[in-house]
Design a protein around this nucleic acid. Sequence first.
DNA 1: CCGTTTCACTTAACCGCTTAACTGATACGT
DNA 2: ACGTATCAGTTAAGCGGTTAAGTGAAACGG
Lengths: 345, 345
Amino acid sequence: MARPNKRTTLREVAEATGLSTAAVSYALRGKHVSKETEERVRKAAAELGYEADPIARALASGRTSTVGVLAGDLQDLWQQQLMAAIGRELLAGDRYALILDAGGDPERELALAKQLRDQRVDGLLVSPVDPSAEGWSKIADAVPVVSIGDALSRARTAGEVLFDNRAGIDAVLDYLRGLGHRRVTVLTPTGPSTPDRPADVYVREAADRLGIEAVVLPCPQELGEATAMARRVLTNSPDGRRPAGPAPATAVFCFSDSIAYGVYAAAAEASLAVGRDLSVVGFDDHPVSRVLTPPLTTVDWGLTDIAKEAARLAVAAIEGRRVRRKRILCAPRLSERGSAAPPRS
Amino acid sequence: MARPNKRTTLREVAEATGLSTAAVSYALRGKHVSKETEERVRKAAAELGYEADPIARALASGRTSTVGVLAGDLQDLWQQQLMAAIGRELLAGDRYALILDAGGDPERELALAKQLRDQRVDGLLVSPVDPSAEGWSKIADAVPVVSIGDALSRARTAGEVLFDNRAGIDAVLDYLRGLGHRRVTVLTPTGPSTPDRPADVYVREAADRLGIEAVVLPCPQELGEATAMARRVLTNSPDGRRPAGPAPATAVFCFSDSIAYGVYAAAAEASLAVGRDLSVVGFDDHPVSRVLTPPLTTVDWGLTDIAKEAARLAVAAIEGRRVRRKRILCAPRLSERGSAAPPRS
DNA sequence: CCGTTTCACTTAACCGCTTAACTGATACGT
DNA sequence: ACGTATCAGTTAAGCGGTTAAGTGAAACGG
């Protein structure tokens, strides 16, 4: 049963050098000991192959130099990108990122967040499933939380990186209107559409302003389901019970690139050429979008910048630095590629 | 400075119930205490909102009910899928998965593995960058390690989930030969091609057997670079200095779906219709492959099964159970979709 | 009726490190 | 020369649990 894996402990280093454990502890962290002893301790530690036990350290000090990253749903292609980018960003700053996946379940999300807090992560980055959950409040009180994509309405966070959805929606609809589109189907992700996520509202406002007839439909993110949904939309029976409705939309505006992929698939099945017979616009700029045929016109939010800002806010909070603006609003950039064109019909 | 976030501790529960901390500790884990006291303790704990501190518990017991998952490179689309699947699988079994990303750096990979081991993860799943690294040995001695995709040649692992690459390669080349292809370009991922990864060898053998002329070229996974590489391949100057070579290949066999995406992009640029002018086969079955136009014919290794097997092996090792076969060899299934067809030229 | 189990806890020693408070010795200002 | 900083370490009390070993009482067997 007993693993003979004895790590060398602080005490052993202390004995080897004839110092007290406290002295060694201080020495290794360069605190008020003489240059010589510090050197001596370092040498002994190196020889014995000593490395501080992070668990013991965490218990005693309450810190871990680790930050938790909680994905709302790692199935989502965009979140996968986001997590990868954040991990990279934090690692570059010499902090370990522990990534967890809530799998789209709000309860699990909070449970995992608590777990992370209990694990003494120094900071927590979340891309929340349910940003308005009550539970965030207690968590944010115990550890600096930075949220991405949505503000945690009930908690005092250390920062938030948000997307200027209104601007993004305006940009896309402006663009489509400019191309001549009058009837646009908008596919928004299903999920808790809290008042903090008034995408529908923005769409309506922009559509009214531009004289666009917009139909907003919720659509699953998962590719298979998204394709099925897109199929229904393209055959002009969005709700499944309008077999012969009014003229079909000439453009589809997808609130995530993966939804757009579904539309591509459905369009191909229906022998509609994207970028000619049908215009499609995405909203994430996933790397794959660039290599589709035609390349997907989409909104680029600057994933790397998002990751950088989020990491920066978290690190600042951890280090107790005040930060000018805790709320970063990312501006959309329309990446005009080949999937949108003037309508044919 | 002092966070007033006092968690309730074991001692407080003990005082509240008039028991010793040991009794409470036992009671909460259902060990040799009377039914009544157990009940009493549970009630008190619930009332006080007590939850055991995982850090303290880890220090004292050496266990965490957490498993580490180390991705070699989270930039890679397939690994993103894999990590998501594993996380889900473990969560289903009530264990937390801590996902880390080595970012393709072998040194970092080992450093992170050590970090995880020190964090007392009960088990470790890796999709290694450098499976032959010396360092795995020490890590595998301290914690059960399950590797995915490659065997850790220098370590005694608790299990490995491997792909029957030879069978996969045979299947694809058989298939292409059956369609009538004689000249095939094979794009393998760049990276340490250790003797444990003799993809080139398998390709040569199969090609010789089938009378196929196969050119094996290393290709980056990153979509932009893959596209650039594919561009060169399609213009028949794979090495950049053969502007007018022999007849170009009629099919491209990509060792990962993301490479195939690059080929799609390059083909579109060159006005080659995939599935007609050019056959493309992938090797991962990423969800996106299904929605490409045409859908990518690829090798499906059963991602969910891989995740399941890996999780199962890890959990078995953690629980100290012996397992029949520690080495799972995944069989390829060719997902025949639209991207490969008889050659035209 | 007595010795032995069994049961239901308690005692106390850790796990490996941090850190506030204390001790002596040396340096400093006046 | 003397009180006071300053420096370099030491002591010891945690951090919040786990767990081997011990204890006293009740139950049991013969």
